[in-house]
Simulated scan of single mutants.
Amino acid sequence: MNGLTTSSERNKTSWILVCISTMLTASIIFWYFNNPEGFIENGIGFRTDVFSNIFIWIFALFILMGYIAYTCIAIPFVKAHLFTISWLKVIGVWAAIVGGIVEEVIFRHLLMEYLLTIGASDVMQILISGILFGIAHGLWVLLKGDWKFALPAIISTTILGSLLAMLYIMAGRSTFAPILAHILINMFIEPWLMLSAVSGKWASK
């Protein structure tokens, strides 16, 4: 790994992840203490009925395995370090957990529930949620101004966001399954995805 990325690039990646994770952790703490029961039941979507439908979890597994496989094919750098353990990976796990929670609360629960209140159909909710999710994640790829990888990143994360939105609706508008799928995806591909964006070494093996 040392031959692929510099100490400066790894340190920059760690600081980016630490700063983002700190803000996201603060958001989770605020949401929880502001309304503990509401956050657990509605924000996290932890309800007993979610566990009674096996198709929810089959679909969640499909999303999880599919996106990890795609990322490994599209970005060899991530595949090469998929099972690498380091101090940066520890930070990546923290980022994976809080990022998965906050992003699903925002892009699925808050956004899609708002769209529902203004009369948007399920299809429109899925499309809008997916597109905004894709745009938000595609911006990271532009850290190096590399449009060659930016467009595929936007398209792939739009598809991922749309699938997670479908899972949200399938689960009775509960974010629990999407959160778990999102966290597990992040745990596999981070911090290497962020490091590849910072270093510009997408294809390094």
Rank of each mutant, 00 (worst) to 15 (best):
M166P: 01
I63Q: 06
M187A: 10
T5P: 03
I189K: 02
I106G: 09
I28K: 11
S174M: 08
S8P: 01
P152M: 11
T175A: 14
M170K: 13
T175M: 13
G92I: 00
S162D: 03
H137T: 09
L24S: 13
A197D: 11
E9L: 03
M112T: 04
I155R: 14
M1G: 00
G130E: 04
D146P: 14
Y70R: 01
M187C: 12
I91M: 07
G66R: 04
M124W: 13
V123L: 12
L82T: 03
W15Q: 09
Q125E: 06
A203Q: 10
A136C: 15
W94F: 14
I185P: 04
F33S: 02
I155H: 13
P191A: 00
V18S: 03
D146M: 05
F83C: 10
L82Y: 07
T117K: 12
S7D: 00
P178Q: 04
W57F: 10
I185K: 05
R47E: 09
K201V: 04
I101P: 00
I131Y: 02
V141K: 05
A165P: 01
Y168V: 10
A95K: 05
K201D: 07
F62H: 07
S129Y: 02
S86L: 10
Q125K: 13
L82W: 09
L4K: 05
G38A: 05
A96R: 07
A136I: 11
F51H: 11
L151S: 01
N34P: 01
F33N: 07
I97T: 03
L151N: 00
S199H: 05
V98P: 14
I56T: 15
I29N: 03
W147Q: 08
I169M: 11
F83M: 11
N11G: 07
G3W: 06
S156Q: 14
W31D: 10
T117D: 10
T71F: 00
F55V: 11
V78N: 03
L115K: 15
F149P: 08
E41Q: 06
F39Q: 00
D49F: 12
G38L: 04
A80R: 13
T117F: 12
K144R: 10
L151G: 00
S162W: 08
N34S: 12
I56Y: 12
G172P: 11
L139Y: 15
D49R: 09
D49C: 06
M1Y: 06
Y32T: 15
V93I: 12
I126H: 03
L184E: 08
S52V: 15
K205W: 09
I44M: 10
S86H: 09
A69S: 05
G130S: 03
T48G: 06
P152Y: 10
V78E: 06
E190C: 01
I85G: 05
V18H: 02
W147L: 13
G38E: 04
S7F: 01
S86Y: 09
M194F: 13
I135L: 15
H81W: 13
I56P: 12
I135W: 13
Y67E: 00
T158I: 06
I154G: 07
W57S: 01
T71D: 00
L111T: 07
G161C: 13
F149L: 08
V18W: 09
A74C: 05
A171E: 01
C72K: 05
P178V: 03
F62V: 13
L4A: 00
E41F: 06
L4S: 00
Y32G: 08
S121W: 15
L115W: 14
T6V: 08
